[in-house]
Amino acid sequence: METRSHAQIQKKLIFYLDNQLGAKEHQQVVQHLSGCDECAAFLRELQSTLCLLEENKQHEPGAYFYASIQNRLQAGHRQPLLGIRLLQPAILVLLLALGIRLGIWIGTQSYAESVLSEQAVLVPFNDLAEEPIEEFLLNLK
């Protein structure tokens, strides 16, 4: 069988399973499937897979379903408000800006401190510069 024919039939299989094909197309698919093991195997697989959708219908709500709703209603359980959802990124941006500002402040402070300490180290040299060498030697004696 032609590959083109396989592809054309495989496109129709999900509709074939749901009985949504016209009479002519339905007949074409039936004919093809009777002589094509590959497409027939995929049809079986598709059917088995789609059958799993029925599983959801077997689930029953838990025994305390209504009691839980009542509890949540009484506790005033609320979903996060839209405003809070929108506020979250704004708060994050604000915190980031504050962090940057704090970083700049700490940087400025430490720079100022380092300048002051440099000046403190330089003081004796300044004094030395102001004190004539003769006087210094006299004081040393």
């Binding site: 959801n56 219908k57 689930h59 029953e60 709500p61 379903f65 209504y66 709703i69």
Partner: peptide, 18 residues
Amino acid sequence: FRLLVEQYQRMVLHTCLG
């Protein structure tokens, strides 16, 4: 309200499960 929950709980649960 209890009646409403009992009537529609399966439908809502199945929709959410889907």
